[in-house]
Amino acid sequence: MSPPRLVVEAVSVAFSGLLALDAVSFTVEPGTVHAVIGPNGAGKSSLLNALCGIYPVTGGRILLDEHEVTRQRPDRVAALGVGRTFQNIVVSPRESVLDNLMVGRHRLTRAGLVRTALWLGRREQRRHEARVREIAEFAGLSARLDTTAGRLAYGDLKRLEFARALCLEPRLLILDEPVAGMNTAESRELGRLVLAARDALGLTVVFVEHDMGVVMSIADRITVLDFGKVVAEGAPAEVRRDPTVVSAYLGVPDDDAPDAPAPEDAVTGHEAERTPR
């Protein structure tokens, strides 16, 4: 299956009067990696939750190829092939890594209560477990499969969530701050994994991230949100030079001439966390 196109058309999300997203529009072309950046509270996570059907969309619409995703239940959205990770890690801490990954196969498997009770789900389970082990190998979790998830190091937990999203065999992969809290080497490795998964599985990727190094190195396009509105969109190089973005988010010191070529350290991105708001 070819990767899908995601079209977000004038999407608004309001919580009792508070407008979290205000007519946000952008298009993610098939097979591209699309980053959504913006200061804290800009509506990035709200946007991802709206894409997944977790937050109710109050205006506009979301299309995944020809499927209308707007106002669908989250499990229906998952059934369309949308896999995601969460900003605050969501796993079953007392279950093994393998079990946590196997949950990702839920939409692809069929064994219900009766079949499972009568030992009829085991063949299906074995077959899917073999595939899950491949994905774990890919994500570097092979040695951890029997470990209780709660005992994993932070970076491994992030990779567990990433691997579990892949276990859905998604077409659209949504990542909410996939490298937050990781060190530079771990971040770079996860960025590489995202690109490798995109190429190998034919995915379209949407992600939110504060780490500008990762954003600039893996994103094909960037949408910048501020106060729930799109303030800029373009290729990384364009966005990096956009004066609105610079003042709203990147926070380059005033004495830096805006038309000067971006210094290399803006790309490694460790001072990108400074948000001068």
Partner: peptide, 13 residues
């Protein structure tokens, strides 16, 4: 049990 939102995102009804 651990997260309803997480389960729903995995396709659990």
């Amino acid at each position: 049990r651990d997260s309803e939102v997480g389960a729903a995102a995995m396709g659990v009804r």
